[in-house]
Nucleic acid binder design. Structure first.
Lengths: 203, 203
DNA sequence: GAGGCAAGACGAGACGTTGCGTCTTGTCTT
DNA sequence: AAGACAAGACGCAACGTCTCGTCTTGCCTC
C-alpha cells in the first residue's frame, strides 16, 4: 500500500499553454455545436492538443467545462465584488435581478451554461464543486446584502437566508432552464415584490 | 410535393405489446444503470424488440423516457385529482409540499426523473411537451387551490399564480436537482411559511 | 551559475470497443 | 399483400487506452 495503484501526473510540469487552449476550445466549441455534439476529440483538435493531455488532467467532459467557467470568473472579479446597497432593499434587488435576467438572456453564455447545468444534474461531485466554487461565492454576496437589510430592520431576523435567496433568484433560473417564458425586467421586478410582500393577502 | 419525403408509419398497425415493453424497459433500465449509460440498444435488448421498432416510433431517447413517464401518470389519476382544501391554506400547502418532498426522496423515481430533467434541459421540444402534458396539469391543480384561497380572501387577488406556484415548489425542486440538502418536512414547512409571509419584516 | 541528464508531459494518432442510426432479411399479423 | 415486427449486419463517430518520438522542466554535477 506504499505505492498508488495509478501514478498521478506531476502538476509542476504541467503546460499552462495547453491548459488554457483546452479551456478556451471547450467553451467556444460548446457554444458553436451545442452540448450534445461536444466531444473530447473535438476539444483536443480545436485546442491543438493530444487527447491524452485532456484525459491526464480532467476526469470528465463536465469537469473541463466546469474549469472553463472557473477560469472566466477568476479572470474578472478582483474580490472587490459586492451587491449594490443603497439602503433601499427592494430597489437594489430589482437592479440585481434585472442584471441576472440580462445575463441569462445573453446568447453567448446560454449554451455553455446550459451544458454545465446538464452535467451538474448527472454528476454529484461536479454539483458539489459548482456549489462551492461558482454558486457559493455569488450566493454569499446575495446573503450579505440580505443580512445588511436585516440590520436595517427591512427583513426579519429569523429569516432563512438560503431560502430567501432561492425564492428570489430561483424563479428566474427555473424559467431560464425550462424555457418557460421571456426573462424580462418586468418579471424580475414582480419576483422581488412578490417575495418581499409574501403571497398572503393583507388588508 | 404530393408525397412525403419519408413514409410515416401506420399507427393502426402498431404493436401495443412492443410499445409497453419498450416503455417499461426504458424506465427500469435508467433506474438500474443510470442515464449516462442508458442506450437505445440496451432498451431494445431488454424489451426483446428490434431497434428499428424504437426508431420507427420515437425521435430520441428522451422522447421514449418522456412517454414512459406519461404512461405512469395515465395509469393512475382518474381525473378526480385535486389538492386538499380544508379552508386552511397554510396547512394544506404544507401537506402537499411534504408529499412532494417524500416523492422526490423516493429512490425508485429519483434516477428516472433526473434523466428526464436532463433531457428537457437540452431539448426545447421535449421541454414544451413536458410543460404541456406532465407539469401543466399538476400546475393547474396547484393554481386552482390558490384560486380557492383568493376567493376565501387568504391571498390577494392580483397575485401572479404562476409565480406563486414557482416560489412554493421551486425551492424543493431546485434543492433536489442540485442535491443541495435533505428534503425534510421541516424544510417544506419553512418554505410555505416564508412564501406566505414574505421576506419583509413586519412589526 | 552553466551544462547535462533523466523523468515525464507533450502532440499525434493507432487501436479495440461501444453505441449510433440505417438498412436488409425473413416472419408474422391484420 | 402491405406493413410492422425481431434480429442483426453495416459503416460511422467518439470513446478511453496505448504507443510513438519530441520537447520541456527540474535537479544534479561541476
Amino acid at each position: 500500500m506504499t505505492t498508488q495503484s495509478r501514478k498521478s501526473p506531476d502538476a509542476a510540469r504541467r503546460s499552462e499553454a495547453s491548459r488554457r487552449a483546452i479551456l478556451t476550445a471547450a467553451f467556444e466549441l460548446v457554444g458553436e455545436v451545442g452540448y450534445a455534439k461536444l466531444s473530447i476529440e473535438g476539444i483536443a483538435a480545436r485546442a491543438g492538443v493530444g487527447k491524452q493531455t485532456i484525459y491526464r488532467w480532467w476526469p470528465s467532459k463536465g469537469a473541463v467545462l466546469f474549469d472553463a467557467f472557473l477560469a472566466l470568473t477568476e479572470g474578472q472579479d478582483g474580490r472587490e465584488a459586492a451587491l449594490p446597497d443603497t439602503g433601499d432593499l427592494e430597489a437594489d434587488l430589482k437592479t440585481v435581478l434585472r442584471a441576472t435576467a440580462d445575463e441569462l438572456n445573453d446568447p453567448h453564455y446560454d449554451e455553455p451554461m446550459r451544458a454545465l447545468n446538464t452535467e451538474i444534474l448527472q454528476d454529484p461531485a461536479l454539483a458539489a464543486a459548482y456549489a462551492e466554487k461558482l454558486d457559493g461565492p455569488m450566493k454569499e454576496l446575495k446573503k450579505e446584502r440580505l443580512r445588511s437589510a436585516q440590520r436595517a430592520g427591512e427583513l426579519s431576523d429569523d429569516l432563512d437566508l438560503d431560502l430567501a435567496v432561492e425564492m428570489l433568484w430561483g424563479p428566474l433560473r427555473t424559467r431560464w432552464l425550462e424555457r418557460g417564458g421571456p426573462l424580462t425586467h418586468a418579471y424580475a421586478d414582480r419576483i422581488v415584490e412578490t417575495a418581499l410582500n409574501g403571497l398572503r393577502h393583507r388588508a
